[in-house]
Nucleic acid binder design. Structure first.
Length: 206
DNA sequence: CTTGCGATTCTA
DNA sequence: AGAATCGCAAGG
């Protein structure tokens, strides 16, 4: 499968966050290629964004991956329980990233369905259950088997990458809103940096 | 070394 | 609305 190239990730973070909607996030794991379609993202725009881990140029062991060139993974641990997957964007001088907040299984991708079913220990999955496997940033990592071991990984490699093709699902428009759970971020709480798929009848947000 | 708290999820 | 649960980052 053709992958998004470096140039895609080196662009403006908000643009990348919008354009990642509908793209296929893929992880080769356990002998299966697990592919899901991204339905919700948030942009974290770097040193001037109080909600971003690199705000003010903060550079610690945790934030190191943010200072890589665009197209790398930034995976960090939160709330004592969850790993969250981000796509690093822009140049190495601009520590920005896009948080993947939600996804859904790609129709017809049986490897992914089998993997997700295994993760949830379900026999069969209703459409609602399939959606519920990936409808939060912690669930995206759990569902795809992404952990902190993937922190800093190059998304142009073979194991973890994002497909360049158009969405396999239905057409959608882009919904915009404020980011979730960043109440501490002063003026940045109101930035319209959350993006989600709108499918006419139903939105991909809770 | 200590401590406050978080880009969440699940249950009620 | 609250608990679970622990690494990170800041401060002493």
């Amino acid at each position: 499968m053709e992958k998004l190239d470096r140039a895609f990730y080196l662009r403006d973070t908000v643009t990348v966050a919008r354009e990642l909607l509908g793209k296929r996030l893929c992880h080769w794991v356990g002998g299966a290629l697990v592919a899901v379609e991204i339905t919700e993202t948030e942009a974290y725009t770097g040193v001037e964004d109080k909600a971003c881990h690199s705000y003010g140029g903060r550079r610690t062991r945790r934030t190191q991956a943010l200072y890589r060139e665009g197209g790398h993974a930034y995976v960090y641990f939160i709330y004592g329980m969850y790993d969250l997957f981000n796509v690093v964007t822009e140049s190495a001088q601009a520590p920005c990233a896009v948080l993947v907040r939600g996804a859904r299984p790609v129709p017809g991708c049986e490897d992914a369905i089998a993997w997700l079913r295994f993760r949830k220990e379900y026999g069969e999955l209703t459409p609602a259950q399939r959606r519920g496997l990936l409808d939060g940033p912690g669930k995206v990592c759990r569902g795809l088997g992404i952990t902190r071991e993937h922190n800093g990984m190059d998304l142009l490699g073979e194991e973890l990458f994002i497909g360049a093709g158009a969405s396999l699902g239905r057409e959608f428009s882009i919904g915009v809103g404020k980011r979730i759970n960043i109440g501490y971020a002063m003026e940045a709480v109101d930035f319209p940096y959350r993006f989600y798929c709108r499918f006419g009848d139903s939105d991909c947000k809770k």
